[in-house]
Design a protein around this nucleic acid. Structure first.
Lengths: 107, 107
DNA sequence: GTTTTACATTCCCATAACGGAATAAGTCAA
DNA sequence: TTGACTTATTCCGTTATGGGAATGTAAAAC
């Protein structure tokens, strides 16, 4: 059995460093494909393909604006990752601080 | 250029669903390789290889106990994932609730 | 030392990835 | 319609994967 497809879920999609960069770039503002390619110094086909992967798992939204297609991070899906990793929050730092920081880190 | 190695960082290591299961299983208590294999219904070689990947990126710790090797999740490394995903917390839920929940979710 | 138990490490193969080049497809302007 | 521009989709070659079987290594029991 080979590795799971990058489009199988958000966890596989964010395994690629360039896709994480794209998500960071699109977190605050919409960008077109060519803008992303310029910002990350990548070829346009590569960027398009990365965006299809991200869109496939719901990590970005897509909106056509004339000839351009504007992409933006869908933070709600990133939240899936956040929630999963939060399962381990109870074990961050030593056991002593657990009670003290429980309210903030276990939230 | 192929996909990044599963051992390149924690993001790549947790892309595999079975490795996430292992981390969940080892979050609260140490387990030996054979116990993990039994719990997840996987072959021993597969489990060993997954554990090497997880250990390589610091997601689990390793301790020999006689013939057994005990593994346990290293939550501190999972925290890396948590912190990255937290970058997007500002965009969870609508803009209106942002101020109200800022203290808890942006922490 | 020999046997048993517990893990780790090959070897194998089918599958999928990534980037780049080339090409296709969709949109607007004249 | 033709042409310019922006994005999407093949096609290609290189590389890594995950599982199973077989094998290697390490530690305890006898």
């Amino acid at each position: 059995m080979p590795r799971a497809a990058t489009t199988s879920d958000a966890f596989n999609a964010i395994a690629e460093p360039r896709r994480r960069h794209i998500l960071e770039l699109l977190a605050h503002e919409e960008r077109s494909v060519s803008e992303i390619a310029a910002a990350l110094d990548l070829g346009q086909p590569s960027v398009s393909k990365h965006l299809q992967v991200l869109h496939g798992v719901g990590l970005v939204t897509q909106r056509r604006e004339g000839r351009h297609v504007m992409y933006r991070t869908n933070a709600e899906t990133v939240r899936t990752i956040h929630e999963w990793s939060r399962l381990f929050a109870r074990h961050w730092r030593g056991q002593l601080r657990r009670i003290k920081t429980h309210a903030e880190e276990d939230r």
